[in-house]
Amino acid sequence: NLYFQGLKYMVPGARVTRGLDWKWRDQDGSPQGEGTVTGELHNGWIDVTWDAGGSNSYRMGAEGKFDLKLAP
């Protein structure tokens, strides 16, 4: 699974964008943008601060869902 392989790169400072299971509307800005991981992966959740200004926790394994992917 590509998403599980990418988890080791989901570290503080990593750049991310919305992924396969995104369901959080425009939390990442409008139009959709990139963000920066600000915390360690914990119980399948990870913290992100978006360039647009907001921050929140997103699923990276929790509930079998992956809200994020590494930015290109």
Rank of each mutant, 00 (worst) to 15 (best):
1 N>P: 14
1 N>Q: 12
1 N>T: 13
2 L>A: 13
2 L>H: 15
2 L>G: 15
3 Y>N: 14
4 F>G: 11
4 F>H: 14
4 F>C: 15
4 F>W: 15
4 F>Y: 15
6 G>T: 15
6 G>L: 15
6 G>K: 11
7 L>P: 07
7 L>S: 09
8 K>T: 11
9 Y>E: 12
9 Y>N: 09
9 Y>W: 13
10 M>Q: 04
12 P>H: 09
13 G>S: 05
13 G>C: 09
13 G>Y: 06
13 G>N: 05
13 G>F: 05
13 G>E: 03
14 A>V: 11
14 A>L: 07
14 A>T: 10
14 A>C: 13
14 A>K: 08
14 A>N: 05
14 A>R: 07
15 R>I: 03
15 R>W: 03
15 R>C: 06
15 R>V: 03
15 R>Y: 01
16 V>L: 01
16 V>I: 05
17 T>Y: 05
17 T>F: 06
17 T>M: 14
17 T>N: 07
17 T>Q: 13
17 T>V: 15
17 T>A: 10
18 R>Q: 07
18 R>I: 08
19 G>S: 06
19 G>N: 07
19 G>Q: 05
19 G>E: 03
19 G>V: 06
20 L>H: 14
20 L>K: 12
20 L>N: 13
21 D>G: 05
22 W>Q: 04
22 W>A: 04
22 W>T: 03
22 W>R: 02
23 K>L: 07
23 K>Y: 05
24 W>P: 06
24 W>V: 05
24 W>A: 05
24 W>F: 06
25 R>F: 15
25 R>D: 15
25 R>L: 15
26 D>H: 08
26 D>P: 05
26 D>S: 08
26 D>N: 10
27 Q>K: 05
27 Q>S: 06
27 Q>I: 05
27 Q>H: 07
28 D>F: 04
28 D>K: 04
29 G>F: 05
30 S>K: 13
30 S>P: 10
30 S>L: 14
31 P>N: 09
31 P>E: 08
31 P>Y: 08
31 P>I: 08
32 Q>L: 10
32 Q>Y: 11
32 Q>E: 10
33 G>K: 07
34 E>A: 13
34 E>R: 13
34 E>M: 14
35 G>I: 02
35 G>A: 01
36 T>M: 07
36 T>R: 07
36 T>Q: 07
36 T>F: 06
37 V>K: 00
37 V>Q: 02
37 V>S: 01
37 V>M: 04
38 T>I: 13
38 T>D: 06
38 T>Y: 07
39 G>W: 03
39 G>K: 09
39 G>P: 00
39 G>V: 04
39 G>R: 10
40 E>P: 13
40 E>M: 12
40 E>I: 13
40 E>W: 14
41 L>W: 11
41 L>E: 06
41 L>A: 08
42 H>K: 12
42 H>C: 15
42 H>F: 11
42 H>W: 09
43 N>I: 06
43 N>C: 15
43 N>L: 10
45 W>C: 07
45 W>Y: 06
45 W>D: 00
45 W>S: 00
46 I>T: 02
47 D>Y: 12
47 D>R: 15
47 D>H: 15
47 D>T: 15
48 V>I: 07
48 V>Q: 00
48 V>W: 01
48 V>N: 00
49 T>S: 10
49 T>V: 12
49 T>L: 14
49 T>N: 09
50 W>L: 02
50 W>K: 00
51 D>Q: 05
51 D>F: 05
51 D>S: 03
52 A>K: 09
53 G>M: 02
53 G>N: 03
54 G>F: 10
54 G>A: 08
54 G>L: 10
54 G>N: 10
54 G>D: 08
54 G>M: 11
54 G>W: 06
55 S>P: 02
55 S>R: 13
55 S>H: 12
56 N>S: 10
56 N>K: 07
56 N>E: 07
57 S>H: 10
57 S>F: 10
57 S>E: 08
57 S>Q: 11
57 S>I: 10
58 Y>F: 02
58 Y>I: 01
59 R>Q: 02
59 R>I: 04
60 M>S: 01
60 M>A: 06
60 M>E: 01
60 M>W: 09
61 G>V: 02
61 G>C: 07
61 G>W: 03
61 G>K: 02
61 G>T: 02
61 G>A: 00
63 E>D: 11
63 E>A: 09
63 E>M: 12
63 E>S: 08
63 E>F: 11
64 G>K: 06
65 K>Y: 07
65 K>E: 04
65 K>F: 08
65 K>V: 04
66 F>D: 00
66 F>P: 02
66 F>C: 10
66 F>H: 05
67 D>L: 01
67 D>C: 02
67 D>S: 04
67 D>A: 02
67 D>V: 03
68 L>Q: 01
68 L>F: 02
68 L>P: 02
68 L>T: 00
68 L>N: 00
68 L>W: 02
69 K>T: 10
69 K>P: 00
69 K>R: 12
69 K>D: 10
69 K>I: 10
69 K>A: 14
70 L>V: 09
70 L>K: 05
70 L>E: 05
71 A>R: 08
71 A>E: 08
72 P>C: 15
72 P>Y: 13
72 P>T: 13
